[in-house]
Simulated scan of single mutants.
Amino acid sequence: MQNGHRGATLRLGSGPSAMSIRARGQHRFGADAKPNDITLTRRNGQWFVSVTLRVPEEACARQRTDDLRRGVDFGVTDWATFDDGRNIDNPRWVREELPRLAALQRQRARKRRGSIRHKRLGSAIARLHDRIGNLRRDFVHKETTRMVRQCAVLATEELAPKNMSRSAKGTVETPGRRVRQKAGLNRENLSAGFGMAHPMLAYKAEEAGTRLHLSNTPTRANSNRRSAARRVGRSCPRRSQSACMTCPHCGHVMQRDQNSALVVLVDANTPGTGVAARPKPLPRQRGKSKSVTRETPTTTAQAV
C-alpha cells in the first residue's frame, strides 16, 4: 500500500497477475496508522475495497472548534432544527430520483423475466438505489461531524425509525386509514436516514469528548411541552399540524421544531430524563487474523 497526498494505491498479489487499485481520499489518523485488513466486495458490477487500519487510541480523538450547547430536533420538512432557530434543509434524495426510478421500473415490468434486457434494467435500478444511499450516507456523515465539532453538549430525542415507518394497512378486520399518505410519510422518514444519524453521533461524540443526551421520547413527550418556562414538568394539549405551537397557559408562540429542540436542551440539564447513547452493548467482534487479503463469501461465490 503506497500513500500519497491525495490518495493511495493498493497492490494485490505479485508478478504479472498482480492488480493495482487506486483509491481517492486520505484518512485523518496520520502516519502512525497501519493497514491491518483488506476486504474485497463486488456490488452492482463494481469492485469495492475496504481497508481496516490499526490506529493508536490517541489518534482517534476529534478536534472541537467550539464549546456550544445545542438542542436539535430531526424532522422531514427540515432535516434538523436547532434551538437557536437555525435549520438544515432536507435534500429529499428519493423524491428527486423518484420519476427516474419509476420510469426504469415501468420499463422493466414490460420485459420478459430472465431476459437480458430485464437483467440490465434491474442492474440500472440497483445502481440508482446505490447512488441514493451513497448521497444519503455522505450527507449524514458531514452534518453529524459538523455538529460534534461545534458542540460540547448535544441534545436530541431518541428516535425509533422502525416504529416511525410502520405500515398503516392494518388487518382485514380493522383496516387502516389514510394508508397512501402514511406510505409517503414512511418513504420520507426512511429517505432522511434517521437510523444512521444517531449511531454516527454516538461514536463521533465519544471521540470528540462531546456529551450526547438522548431524551426519552415516549415518557417525555417533547412535542407537547413548552420551553418558555424553562421547566420540564409543564405540558400543553396535543398540538395541531400547524407549523407553530401556541401554549394555552401563557400564550407563548414558537415554531414547533425549535420548541422541541429547546425542550431536549432543558432535559440535558435534568437528571433522569435521557437514555444511553448505546442502549445495547455492541456485539463482540471475533479476533481477526493479520492476513493481508481475505475474500468475502459473496466474492467467493461469484468467483466459483
Rank of each mutant, 00 (worst) to 15 (best):
T217A: 05
T217Q: 08
G170L: 07
Q255A: 14
R166C: 01
V253Q: 07
G176C: 11
S227L: 02
L185N: 12
R187N: 08
N259V: 07
K204V: 06
R225V: 00
Y203G: 03
C250V: 13
T217W: 04
P237G: 08
P161M: 02
R225G: 00
S242M: 05
Q241N: 06
R238F: 10
P237E: 03
D257S: 13
A261N: 05
V179I: 15
G193H: 06
G233Q: 03
R178N: 12
A221M: 03
R187C: 15
P237T: 14
G251Y: 10
Y203F: 09
A221K: 01
T210Y: 02
C244L: 12
R166V: 01
V264C: 01
S242N: 12
L185A: 05
S240Q: 06
P199N: 09
A197E: 02
L214E: 04
S240C: 10
G233A: 11
R187Q: 11
K182V: 12
G233K: 02
M200F: 07
Q241Y: 15
R220V: 01
S223F: 09
P248S: 10
L212P: 00
V179G: 15
R211I: 10
K182P: 02
N163C: 04
L212H: 05
V263Y: 02
H213V: 08
L214H: 01
P199D: 07
T219K: 05
A208N: 07
A202N: 12
E206F: 00
V172W: 12
P199S: 08
G195E: 04
R226I: 14
G176R: 02
P161W: 04
